[in-house]
Simulated scan of single mutants.
Amino acid sequence: MRRLLFIASTLIALVAAGCPLVIQVRCDDSFRCDDGEACVAGACVQVALESAQVGAACTSDATCGAGLTCGMGFPGGYCLAPCGAGDTCASGSVCVKELGRCMRACGETCGRPGYACTPVPQPGSSTWACAPTSSNGGDGGTDPAPSEDAGCAGQVPLNEHCAQACDCAPPGADCVDSVCVRACTRDSDCSDGSRCNETWHRCEEGPRLGEACRESRDCPGSATCNAQRRCKTICNTDWSCPLDYRCAPDSVCVNECTNTPPETVGLTCETSLDCARCGFCVASGTVKQCRQPCLLDRDCPGGAVGSCEQVGSTALRACRLP
């Protein structure tokens, strides 16, 4: 107790005398320093990152300077600085949040041979930085090597634990609350074998409407697994169906056709779910056959006048069969 009182009184005396009190946080491989700090002799110390060094060629971390690392997956090496949730990067550099690293900002400074101003970490990204061009064996930071150098393996599947966005394997996935997720508004935003959860607006594994199922709990939302073992949702209008789906004449939601007609056109069917991705099951005499939905004649093969006709007494239309 006397020792604690002595230490406390000594600290108070030092502060009162105007002596600066510096408390250094210990660091090692299991405890990383904050952005703008470097681990020096086991303690986190403030460092002034040299923005001119970010994006420079390198052969090791030492050639980049304190607080920077050398990304050897980039052609000729690439000095990288860390950036976190605050997107803090030195002047002349920009934070690529998916990688958790600062890269050289676009401008006259992007003059390295084989490098150019390009979206990172993949084509279509909103962030632009000085990155390898495809002619130099890179693709603006989208190949696996640069991601690994940024501290990511890119092997974590959806809904599994992650530390940062580039840990996630699916393209376009983000690390939210330490879990790999992919934001979506419709099923087409998700990769094959997954669908968009209407409540959370995140891609999840499982069959979509009209796809094969074993039981109702395999299907999205309130959809059920029908007798033909396909996920089925009953509808009255197109508004009753999710985005990219429409209500077929037999009141089931089917995927909306794009530029490719359903491959089942002309085949016999019981319901529109038998017509694959986007067909309508329509009565033709004594049988039901799969037809291609349409709005105008030009939506049908050949686009002949009258080729898009009304289906029964409904407001729906389908292409005439050949």
Rank of each mutant, 00 (worst) to 15 (best):
E148A: 14
W200L: 15
S91R: 03
G151L: 02
M103A: 15
P146M: 04
P113D: 12
R208Y: 01
W128T: 14
P242N: 09
V40R: 14
C27M: 13
R217S: 15
S93V: 06
L295N: 15
A8P: 01
L267C: 10
S188L: 06
F31E: 05
C168F: 00
A276D: 14
T88H: 07
R320F: 01
V156L: 01
I234Q: 14
D250T: 03
A81G: 13
I12F: 14
C294G: 12
S135N: 07
P146K: 01
V25L: 04
D174T: 14
R104H: 07
S51Y: 06
Q228N: 11
R208Q: 13
A17P: 00
C83E: 08
D174A: 12
R277W: 09
A43T: 13
D299S: 09
P293C: 06
S60C: 07
S125D: 12
C44D: 08
A150E: 07
P242Q: 10
L49H: 07
S30E: 07
V15L: 10
K288A: 07
Q289G: 07
R208C: 02
S91Y: 05
A116R: 10
A85D: 10
C231F: 06
G303F: 02
V120C: 11
F31A: 09
D87S: 13
G84S: 02
G55W: 03
A223L: 08
C102T: 12
A41N: 14
D29I: 07
H161W: 04
V15W: 02
C290H: 03
C241T: 07
G86T: 11
A276C: 01
T286C: 00
C275E: 01
P249E: 09
G67Q: 02
A38W: 04
A116P: 02
G154Q: 07
R26N: 12
L273S: 04
L321K: 11
C294D: 12
D189A: 05
A165H: 01
N197Y: 04
E198S: 13
S51P: 13
D61Q: 04
S251E: 11
D297W: 05
T69M: 09
N159P: 00
S216N: 04
P242M: 06
L296H: 15
R230T: 13
C152P: 04
C117A: 12
T142Y: 05
G36W: 04
F74N: 12
G65S: 04
V25F: 03
G137R: 06
A85V: 14
V156G: 02
G86H: 07
C294M: 11
T224E: 00
G138S: 07
S30Q: 10
C219F: 02
R230Y: 02
Q310H: 08
